[in-house]
Nucleic acid binder design. Structure first.
Ligand SMILES: [Mn+2]
Ligand SMILES: [Mn+2]
Ligand SMILES: [Zn+2]
Ligand SMILES: [Zn+2]
Lengths: 140, 140
DNA sequence: CGGCATGTGAGAACTGTTGTCGACTGTGCG
DNA sequence: CGCACAGTCGACAACAGTTCTCACATGCCG
């Protein structure tokens, strides 16, 4: 039986007000900074539960860290700005059909795929060097 | 100045005779089992150098482990059997164009993407439960 | 209200990876 | 050849992210 706790509600709330992705550790830090007391293990358990529920999407940073984001439930992919972290959800039957067809041609069944697109968004490449002050550290 | 050492030669050789992906730790274990003495750090340094050289491709397991494979140099993606680990290199202009177009429509520049396809290969789903004896542990 | 299954969290433990540093060794030069 | 020394090695420590442990707390059903 899954129980309603202050902590789980709060983790959920963090992803409500969040643009883009956040790691479990970032969620933990943000909650603590905001005055919510919560253990790191609990954050990990909560995001894992939300992923299992299909409420969060999870991808992996180049460095291997898992990052999470509230997502629409339909199948889609991400277009991520490597400077500011802005994320667009994108979808298209073209690539879906291509992946399935190519796998089928090789005799594969039960096919899934992962696809992420990285680039620099309009805001981040337009001005001559936009203030890099608030740019997050690594590629998201 | 880059130097030729027994260790680097040996790591390179491992990927020559290897089907599919292997992690740095697997390479290390395999070498030790085969009588080659080598340090784990050296294996990590060697595979990293090979990746930088463009001689190895690197992707990440669901569990976050980095795995490597000798690759052709042109841009392509992987179709990986989640049972036996067999890997096909696939490519297609369709998906390349789709990714670039979709990114362009959102104003993104300097676009790259990652794409991996997972499935069960013909050999692994044909017989009623193919001997799971020699199946590697986790999804590759 | 109990009662107790479920959840929490501080800390330990684990995993994959990178850094440190004294010892070693290809390589170019004399 | 042999010497010098920058590049390399590897045992080990250190890290980062994540999971486990277990004593304690707390939702939830009756
Ligand atoms: Mn898709
Ligand atoms: Mn491609
Ligand atoms: Zn941006
Ligand atoms: Zn297979």
């Amino acid at each position: 039986m899954i129980r309603n706790t202050r902590q789980r509600t709060a983790v959920n709330a963090v992803f409500e007000e969040l643009e883009g992705f956040a790691s479990a550790q970032e969620v933990h830090a943000r909650m603590r900074a905001g005055g919510d007391s919560i253990g790191l293990s609990t954050v990990y358990r909560a995001v894992q539960a939300l992923v299992d529920d299909g409420e969060l999407d999870s991808i992996r940073t180049d460095s291997g860290e898992a990052i999470y984001r509230r997502c629409s439930t339909r199948h889609h992919h991400h277009l991520v700005c490597r400077v500011c972290g802005r994320t667009e959800e994108v979808e298209g039957p073209t690539v879906e059909r291509w992946a399935d067809r190519v796998a089928g041609e090789h005799g594969f069944v039960d096919v899934k795929h992962t696809l992420e697109i990285f680039g620099t968004c309009a805001a981040c490449h337009a001005p001559a060097e936009p203030s890099p002050v608030d740019a997050p550290a690594d590629q998201r």
